[in-house]
């Protein structure tokens, strides 16, 4: 069943010198209740894609699409109010760094309860119980204590688990995770991903995992879209990483360091060749 269907999504911003620059150029994909990875280098448009889907691109940024359908709702025609009803309740987004994405002066429990506050009519006590459940779901041992803490009092890994709890407390259908582990210590990355993966599978949510880490995405996702320069250059199915054919993907794979490797220099992307390929693909 298709949860999200996007066709020809374009995001553009005005250039200071006049005209507009497109950062997402005609992206199309369908997402079911599965785990879709979006990979690409910095500036390839992957984060903008996530924000455009959430309706978070503010003017002067502009989002257009031939079709952007979320579970029967036409997102292109949705008002801000309609979007607000979806956000937090049916679609949510985990941001990169809990140091910046959690409000420093509001207690963790209150921040998690906020989605409940504006989407449900639950009593304060019922909200507290839900917050405790959500914190337990991200494997926080003493949820009542953590709920009373401020974000600066928890570690990065725990902060990101709090962030996930905040985004799943209302059991949304779609979760976008925008570089959810890039700001974390290597030692807790896998743990955070495992928690997220477990939640997504158990609740049957659709996950869009945005990252620059090809290997990580390959490990946790059913399908991968490789983005370059605002466009999807390749789609990779399950276990198909080695079969990838596009020179950009091959370049990304080739430039990954390996433990038993004795190369002194890692290969880098041949951008001139990429520009040629891109020019051929485009009519």
């Amino acid at each position: 069943m298709t949860l999200l269907s996007v066709q020809d999504l374009r995001v553009s911003f005005p250039r200071p010198s006049g005209g507009r620059v497109e950062v997402v150029r005609g992206l199309s994909f369908d997402l079911g209740r599965e785990r879709l990875g979006i990979v690409g280098e910095s500036g390839s448009g992957k984060s903008m894609t996530g924000r455009a889907l959430m309706g978070l691109i503010a003017p002067p940024g502009r989002v257009t699409a031939q079709r952007m359908q979320f579970d029967g709702t036409d997102l292109t025609k949705l008002s801000e109010k309609g979007y607000r009803a979806l956000r937090g309740a049916r679609m949510s987004m985990v941001l990169q760094d809990p140091k910046f994405s959690l409000n420093p002066v509001i207690r963790i429990g209150d921040q998690i309860a906020e989605a409940l506050e504006f989407h449900t009519t639950l009593s304060a006590a019922a909200r507290r119980a839900k917050v405790r459940d959500a914190l337990e779901a991200v494997r926080i041992d003493d949820p009542d204590r953590v709920a009373r803490l401020f974000p600066h009092e928890v570690s990065g890994g725990m902060g990101q688990r709090v962030m996930i709890a905040m985004m799943v407390v209302l059991e949304p259908d779609l979760m976008i995770a925008d570089e959810p582990t890039s700001a974390l210590d290597v030692s807790v990355r896998e743990q955070v991903l495992a928690i997220m993966d477990d939640l997504v599978r158990r609740r049957g949510m659709g996950l869009m995992l945005i990252s620059h880490d090809l290997n990580m995405v390959a490990r946790w996702c059913d399908r991968i879209l490789v983005m370059f320069n605002g466009e999807v250059v390749e789609e990779i199915g399950p276990g198909g990483l080695q079969a990838a054919s596009h020179p950009y993907t091959r370049g990304l794979i080739a430039s990954l360091p390996k433990l038993d490797d004795t190369r002194t220099e890692l290969p880098v992307l041949d951008r001139a060749a990429l520009a040629r390929v891109n020019a051929e693909v485009r009519p």
């Binding site: 924000r51 978070l56 941001l95 760094d97 906020e114």
Partner: peptide, 16 residues
């Protein structure tokens, strides 16, 4: 700041 985006992601009204 990023936490403003977080608040919007949660569907919090603009006034809040």
């Amino acid at each position: 700041q990023e936490f403003i985006t977080t608040a919007r992601v949660k569907g919090v009204p603009e006034r809040v």
